[in-house]
Design a protein around this nucleic acid. Structure first.
Lengths: 149, 149
DNA sequence: AATGAGATCAATAATCATTCTAAGAAAGCT
DNA sequence: AGCTTTCTTAGAATGATTATTGATCTCATT
């Protein structure tokens, strides 16, 4: 198995998937980023390695990598999509103040059906969970900057 | 208390909030809609009552109503935001096939912190949960249309 | 009733993320 | 090598939303 920064297993890829230089760079950029970069951020970082790469290619590569299970796409409200190379089961914590996105890992494995009453006869394929709040850094910043009025 | 279609309590509004005719229409349109309409859909429905209303005004009204807790905004991936007059605690079930959005109400009241390990010292303000899958209608449609290959 | 401050409205333009299009480049198959 | 398919690229296009700006409305005070 190929070594990688995150320590996750690489999924088995179908034969028709070509790991082109552009896709490799896009994948490596996201794997080396711990801040859930947007497509534009990935584009800027990828350019340092492949200056000729275009934003459209970055979008194409991200789509392909997500479709093949090498990356996760994170959508928060209507802001730009963000990308994440952590393929373990997790949700995202989003700071309303600084916009930072952090991973939050599950503690228990409660099935969805025990938490919410789903439409009778529906089939669940995916769960998108975003926890919004104030991150520890901003909580601290607020406490020192403007004490309770 | 004012009677309304959904049977929920109307929140107490701050003095600086003006319930203008446009805001009233936008609010009533969403309250009378059970399909989580988009801003454009609200615009089209509101036009039947106030033909002169503009899309920009609908956006402004929706923003204000959401900010004052009279409506909920539902964001699913990068599609248009949808709006919802059900102010009870609930999450959304989104059908990948027909795009329908249905409410799903909580069964248990597990605190978030028992389900996911949040960043130490963070403060949670909101939980955005979208359950994706196939709705009962589409499951049925698929079964009759194309039996297992 | 007139005034003035502040909020709201509507039309238009602008922005922003993303997708589409078309043409050339690269890779894989025969 | 020749053919086919897939990728990449630049630029145009799309679609949702936001910003701007001047007109209009509302309300508390004169």
């Amino acid at each position: 198995m190929k070594a990688n920064l995150t320590g996750h297993d690489e999924p088995v890829l179908p034969a028709d998937f070509r790991m082109t230089p552009q896709r490799t760079v896009v994948h490596e950029v996201v794997k080396a980023s711990y801040d859930h970069p947007t497509a534009t951020e990935v584009f800027m970082r990828a350019k340092e390695h492949v200056p000729a790469i275009s934003l459209a290619t970055v979008y194409n590569c991200l789509d392909t990598l997500v479709a093949h299970g090498l990356l996760k796409q994170v959508n928060l409200d209507r802001a730009s999509s963000r990308f994440c190379a952590n393929m373990n089961d997790h949700v995202h914590f989003h700071c309303d103040q600084c916009g930072a996105v952090a991973d939050a890992h599950p503690i228990s494995n409660m099935p969805i059906s025990t938490l919410w009453k789903l439409p009778e006869g529906s089939r669940v394929t995916r769960l998108d969970i975003a926890i919004r709040g104030i991150c520890p850094e901003c909580v601290k910043k607020n406490a020192t900057a403007k004490p309770q009025v």
